[in-house]
Design a protein around this nucleic acid. Structure first.
Length: 491
RNA sequence: GCCCCCAUCGUCUAGUGGCCCAGGACGCAGGCCUUUCAAGCCUGUAACGCGGGUUCGAUUCCCGCUGGGGGCGCCA
């Protein structure tokens, strides 16, 4: 009780969640959680052209993936529903009637084509375009004729012409626009659907939204919505406009450049923890030097006062780093479960009947060098492959001849085969002893072995890898490598 | 074109008149560690857009310029 903080995220169902909207949602969520308020999810689908249930689910999936659960709204219920604008039409209709009746709105029969001409002319003549109120100024007889004709019309809000529209933005301070700049915006389309600026005002009021936290691209909309709210007798919520996320060229983050959907990052193997942490730091900072935050820590540290005004470039280097930080912080079983879908999809492991213990041992070895889940298949494949076909050239030890390398590998195979127990210490003692015997540096001997059993030059530490692979796999691969090198020398 | 907003290292940012020849993080470079690759640790690299004011003193306040961005839809 007692707490009146109510915020909302109001996505339009586009099938996917844009990272900019994801950040807006995150800030709303953090603010709600921190204040003990209510976080509401509303679906803004007044544009019938693009709205399907699947599209809504796509967006919700990403919110849930990030861990941003909502208290009230679509699929969650609450006493301000329905939470889908397309199901609230009668509510908007009632308010339209009210505005029409008290002279705050009027019908307009101008066609888009006609308006287009006016807009272009205004720009040519270097003056701002504003709807000339043609249909407001119609003679009574003419208006009556149009009404009788049944021609399609929109409904416009009669904006104030004098004074200023002011509000206090929680991140940018006092915002003011001359009312003369305002246009008579369309609030109901020819098809009878309300427009965003109208439906939003009504819903925010009816849902008792206390703080509207949204992108700075809505700054001007706020000036347009306030007069509507006043005309309807509503109290205003507080407003906070967040800086925009931009492309590296500083333009508004759009689809043209790279991945901008939350789903893209999930597919690329980023952890939701990393994405949330990264997004939080784009436009906000805690005021101290902490960089790594769990969602809970963000809730505790967040404040609108520390939100920046300048736009932030959406650059990935820090996300890549954070992802590594979170991967390393996971327990091995957890990391394993998160990796399985990637490994299975790449065909590295079968979806069923996987030896969990072996899988975990292998993943445990790669954990600290994994930057994202999507690269798990390519670094783990040698643990599961039938054979590894190393490049013969790479089986030659540094500063040694192919022949000497061959005999060294043969000795390695012999000695290893004699080992009584296949553990780290005996293997290490054996191989270091062999290197000393040969008069080689450890690294000279280890690299050919590494290549022989993994097919790669970059792998987890050798002995651990051999232990996980087991003696049978190791010796088989060693033997195969010996044959391959011998054949290569013979050629 | 019109209206509005913004402006510190490559990027995210700290900084609110002197503590700043500007701090942190990522990145990058080098080093240490080391059986490779990572991880870790250390060192380094790099910024107050420009011009006027105000002030004893400006990154911090004011003005202008420049640059960038957003909005100007029967999209949201």
């Amino acid at each position: 009780m007692g707490n009146s903080v109510r915020v909302r995220i109001a996505p339009s169902p586009t099938g996917n969640l844009h990272v900019g909207n994801a950040r807006t949602a995150l800030y709303n969520y953090l603010f709600a959680r921190q204040t003990g308020g209510t976080y509401i999810l509303r679906i803004d689908d007044t544009d019938a052209k693009r709205s399907s249930d699947e599209d809504i689910e796509g967006v919700l999936y990403s919110f849930r993936w990030m861990g941003l659960d909502w208290d009230e709204g679509y699929e969650a219920g609450g006493d301000c529903g329905p939470y889908r604008q397309s199901e609230r039409l009668s509510l908007y209709q009632a308010h339209v009637e009210e505005l029409l009746a008290n002279g705050h709105a009027y019908r307009c029969w101008c066609t888009p084509a006609e308006l287009d001409v006016l807009r272009k002319r205004a720009q040519q003549e270097r003056r701002p375009f504003r709807y000339p109120q043609t249909c407001l100024l119609l003679a009574a007889a003419e208006r009556a004729a149009r009404e009788r004709s049944g021609a399609p019309y929109v409904i416009r809000f009669l904006s104030p012409r004098e004074g200023t529209v002011d509000f206090l933005d929680l991140v940018r301070g006092n915002m003011r626009v001359d009312a003369a700049e305002l246009d008579d915006l369309v609030i109901v389309r020819a098809d009878g659907m309300p427009t965003y600026n109208f439906a939003s005002v009504i819903d925010d009021s009816q849902m008792r939204i206390s703080h509207v936290i949204r992108g700075a691209d809505h700054l001007y909309n706020t000036h347009r919505q306030i007069p509507i709210a006043f005309a309807l007798g509503f109290d205003l919520p507080a407003y906070a406009h967040l800086p925009l996320l931009t492309n590296p060229d500083r333009t508004k983050l759009g689809k043209r450049s790279g991945a901008v959907l939350v789903g893209d990052y999930a597919k690329q193997g980023y952890l939701p923890e990393a994405v949330v942490n990264f997004l939080a730091l784009l436009g906000w900072n805690p005021g101290d030097t902490q960089e790594v935050f769990s969602l809970e820590e963000l809730v505790a540290a967040f404040s609108l006062e520390r939100v920046n005004r300048a736009n932030a470039v959406f650059e990935l280097q820090k996300l890549v780093w954070l992802n590594g930080v979170y991967i390393r912080s996971l327990t091995v079983p957890d990391l394993t479960e998160r990796s399985v879908p990637f490994l299975a999809e790449a065909g590295v492991i079968a979806a069923e009947n996987v030896d969990r213990t072996y899988l975990q041992d292998a993943i445990g070895l790669e954990q600290e060098r994994l930057k994202n889940l999507a690269e798990a298949p390519s670094v783990l494949d040698f643990f599961f492959a039938d054979d590894v076909t190393p490049e013969p050239k790479l089986l030659v030890a540094k500063k040694q001849t192919p022949a000497d390398s061959l005999s060294a590998l043969q000795r390695v195979h012999e000695q290893l085969a004699l080992l009584a127990s296949w553990d780290h210490e005996p293997i290490e003692a054996c191989l270091r002893g062999l290197a000393a015997e040969l008069g080689w540096k450890a690294g000279q001997l280890f690299m050919p072995i590494r290549v022989a059993i993994t097919g790669k030059t970059a792998t987890p530490p050798l002995f651990e890898t051999m232990v996980v692979l087991g003696s049978e796999r190791t010796l088989t691969r060693l033997a195969a490598a010996i044959d391959a090198l011998a054949a290569d020398i013979a050629e």
